[in-house]
C-alpha cells in the first residue's frame, strides 16, 4: 500500500477521470512488442480517423469464441485506403453468461472519435497492434493525441533479446504531426491468409 499526500492523490484521481472520459476505455494488458508509429504503419492497411458506432456480436467460426464487430465511420484517411464505413473485429463478448476479453484489446466506446491503425486480412478489419493502435483525439483547447497502452511492452536489444520497455515510445503529439510522421511510409496494404 502506498500513501500519497492528498494533493498528489487528488491530481492523480483527476487525471484518471479525465483519461477515462477522453480516451476509448482500455481493457487489460497482454504481452506485445512495442511498435513505433512508422513500424505500426508499415504493417497496417490504413490509418484513419473515425467515430465509433454500434457493435454486434458473432461467433468465431473456428474457435467458437464471441467476436465483437464494431462499426467505424471514417471521416478522414491519413494513410492507406479504407472505406467510409468498416467493422473492426475483436475477440471479446459475452456468451452463455460468460464474458471474455483479450487483455490489451481496447473497449471501443460508441460515439468516441479516434485515430486507428488498421490491418485488413482477407477483407476483414482489425486493430493493428491492440491498444497501441488507438489514439484519442484532443479537444479544441488541448489538441494533443492521447493513447492508453495497457500492454506489457517489450523491445529487442541489439543482440536480439527481449527487454521490457521502460519508457513510452515517442508518438506524434497532434494530428498534423501524425500526418507528418506517416508521410513517406509504405503501408502493407491488404493481406491474405497464406
Amino acid at each position: 500500500m502506498r500513501l500519497y499526500p492528498p494533493s498528489v492523490s487528488l491530481i492523480a484521481l483527476l487525471a484518471v477521470l479525465l483519461a477515462n472520459t477522453a480516451a476509448p476505455r482500455s481493457a487489460e494488458a497482454t504481452s506485445a512488442l512495442a511498435l513505433s508509429v512508422p513500424e505500426m504503419a508499415q504493417v497496417s492497411a490504413a490509418v484513419v480517423v473515425g467515430t465509433i458506432g454500434t457493435s454486434r456480436q458473432e461467433i468465431h467460426p473456428i474457435h467458437a469464441r464471441p467476436v465483437t464487430a464494431t462499426v467505424i465511420t471514417v471521416d478522414r484517411t491519413l494513410a492507406g485506403a479504407a472505406p467510409p464505413d468498416l467493422e473492426i473485429r475483436q475477440w471479446r463478448g459475452t456468451l452463455n453468461g460468460r464474458t471474455s476479453a483479450i487483455p490489451g484489446d481496447p473497449s471501443l466506446e460508441p460515439g468516441t472519435r479516434a485515430l486507428f491503425f488498421l490491418r485488413n486480412v482477407d477483407g476483414q478489419w482489425f486493430l493493428t497492434a491492440l491498444s497501441q493502435s488507438v489514439f484519442s483525439l484532443g479537444t479544441e483547447t488541448d489538441p494533443r493525441l492521447h493513447r492508453t497502452v495497457d500492454l506489457a511492452l517489450f523491445v529487442r536489444t541489439p543482440d536480439g533479446a527481449l527487454q521490457r520497455l521502460a519508457e513510452p515510445l515517442p508518438v506524434p503529439a497532434t494530428l498534423s504531426a501524425m500526418e507528418s510522421a506517416l508521410r513517406g511510409v509504405t503501408l502493407r496494404g491488404e493481406e491474405t491468409t497464406p
Binding site: W91, I102, L127, S133
Partner: peptide
C-alpha cells in the same frame, strides 16, 4: 490476425 504479429503471448 486480430491479435497482430507483434503480440508475444495472450
Amino acid at each position: 490476425a486480430s491479435l497482430g504479429s507483434g503480440t508475444l503471448a495472450v
